[in-house]
Design a binder for these strands. Structure first.
Lengths: 149, 149
DNA sequence: CTTTTTAGTTAAGCATCCTTAAATATATGC
DNA sequence: GCATATATTTAAGGATGCTTAACTAAAAAG
């Protein structure tokens, strides 16, 4: 097997395992708190963007801006989001996570990561070093690809 | 920073990036085919288990067996799932992916992995080797943790 | 053999998500 | 300044997903 086929296979396998696991843990946690996945995805989006407008959310989630507006409204009323007028364009809104919303997201991320820490514990010191370096390489590469799009 | 903190951080970052990216690409693809996320998650579950009963699905997805039964019914009618009587227990059903269902899932996985291949292309030969080894270590460890539960 | 448990289905009903259409308010182009 | 475009909201309605409750059929327990 060539190197590039080998790494491709290894990467796919790893991404498959982690995504599968991650999604399951996270969705369980979110459901246990009484939030739906669409609501949660929207919160995640705000978390990643730090701040965004209704139309950013509707584009990214591929729903109409009406739907985005309605979901945001619910989450504002639940105290997870804050919605302010954009001073530079008074038609637009600035959506941000409230303290409560940020806590929810960060807890859900920790939930998702608990098993990652178990993984770490299973590795010897030299394995840890190798893995750590490799992951930095990958994360860098991923960011490059992401930014190019 | 100690090694174990460092690797934990690197792992979290990497899992974060990949999960985020993976879920987005996959959900877009699935939606573009006219399937909902709950339907898709159920299909994924059957894909991973190869074969399972209604109650397996309801347990794993944390919904009632009535809900699982109804969703399966829809997917059978869409031609994505097959439902047969379990010969060893005639109350139970054996749910499997149809050819069409398998194709859908595999395409969605490929969709999810297109950017992984872009990543690979961005790495030099020695980086590829390092990364490949590290991923094998991780995938092994992940399987161990998964099986222990 | 009868009772109880287990696996799945069906029906009714409620909540959520999402859409379209119409409305408001602000910004931009000419 | 006036017409058009943009950002968001609101209301009405359709589709889906889920739940509970009632039911059928088969297996397991006694």
């Amino acid at each position: 097997m060539t190197d590039s086929l080998q790494i491709s296979k290894a990467l796919r396998q790893w991404v498959d395992v982690t995504t599968h696991r991650s999604m399951r843990d996270q969705s369980r946690y979110v459901k246990s708190l009484g939030f739906s996945m669409p609501q949660f995805f929207l919160l995640m989006q705000v978390y990643y963007k730090k701040q965004c407008g209704i139309s950013d959310l509707s584009e990214h989630m591929e729903i109409t801006s009406a739907a985005a507006s309605q979901t945001v409204e619910k989450l504002v009323q639940s105290g997870l989001l804050e919605r302010a007028e954009d001073p530079s364009d008074r038609r637009a809104k600035q959506i941000t996570l409230s303290v409560k919303g940020r806590e929810l997201i960060e807890k859900s991320i920790n939930e998702r990561f608990r098993w990652v820490d178990e993984l770490t514990a299973n590795l010897g010191a030299d394995e840890q070093k190798k893995v750590s370096q490799a992951l930095d390489i990958l994360t860098e590469a991923a960011k490059k690809v992401e930014n190019r799009e």
